[in-house]
Computed example of a mutant assay.
Amino acid sequence: MAERKGLVMVNTGDGKGKTTAALGLVLRASGYGWRILIIQFIKSGKGYSEFEAAGKLPGVEIRATGQGLIRPGADRTSHREAARQGWEMARDEVASGRWDLIVLDEINIAMRMGFVDPDEVAQLIKDKPPSLHLVLTGRDCPEKIMDLADMVTVMEARKHHADNGVAAQKGVEF
């Protein structure tokens, strides 16, 4: 069997399902006995049932480094510091060679907000171990990152039940 070629996959766009798609890949990889790490940027790790479930899968480790929702006009200093700590962790873990799949959840948002430099992410992609699969999620992925990726999926919002006054529902949005 040929040596595995680690892919860089990006899930971006304004539509729902970027993290959910990454978690589908996590489910599949866990079924093959892979070692999987999910690092959450922005999200605090609290109140996300999908991560509660994913954390019970064999071989899956989840580390939340974010502080949760960033409100407009709020001081972003602590969010920036948390994202930088998450970034340092991501660099160390990618270089470690311990993982088959790493998901950097909402890293695209961290880049958009200026918490993580897209040039640093680009260098991480170029330097990652050849067999490591790497998934980057979140809206507004920089073009330079998409250009380096092997696969880019753009989630497009065409219609959403919230537009008709239907509130977020347990098991669907959270």
Rank of each mutant, 00 (worst) to 15 (best):
I39R: 05
F41G: 01
A64E: 09
V60Q: 01
K56H: 04
F51R: 07
R76N: 09
L69F: 15
A64L: 07
Y48Q: 13
V60G: 01
W34I: 03
R76P: 02
E61S: 15
E61M: 14
W34C: 12
K56Q: 11
L37M: 08
P58A: 03
D75C: 11
A53S: 07
T77V: 09
P72Y: 10
Q40S: 12
L57H: 04
E50P: 00
Y48I: 07
P72C: 12
I36L: 08
S49C: 09
A64D: 10
V60H: 02
G33V: 07
G33H: 07
G47C: 11
I70Q: 07
R71I: 09
I42D: 01
I62R: 09
A54C: 02
F51T: 02
I38K: 05
F51E: 15
I70S: 05
I70P: 00
T65I: 02
R63V: 14
G45Q: 05
G55L: 06
A53E: 06
K43Y: 08
K46I: 13
G45I: 02
I36P: 03
I42R: 01
I70D: 03
K46G: 10
K46C: 11
P58D: 07
K56M: 06
G33M: 04
I62E: 08
S49R: 14
G66V: 10
G73V: 14
K56Y: 00
G59F: 06
R35M: 03
W34S: 10
S44I: 06
A74C: 13
A64V: 05
A53K: 09
Q67S: 13
T65K: 13
E52A: 08
A74N: 08
L69P: 03
I38F: 04
E50N: 00
I36W: 04
L69E: 06
G59I: 05
G66R: 01
K46M: 09
I42G: 00
R63P: 08
E50M: 00
L57A: 02
T65R: 13
L37K: 03
R76A: 12
I38W: 04
K43N: 11
G66K: 03
D75G: 11
S44Q: 09
W34G: 06
G59K: 03
I36A: 03
S78T: 15
E52Y: 05
S44G: 15
S49G: 09
I42Q: 01
A64H: 07
A74M: 14
D75W: 05
R63H: 14
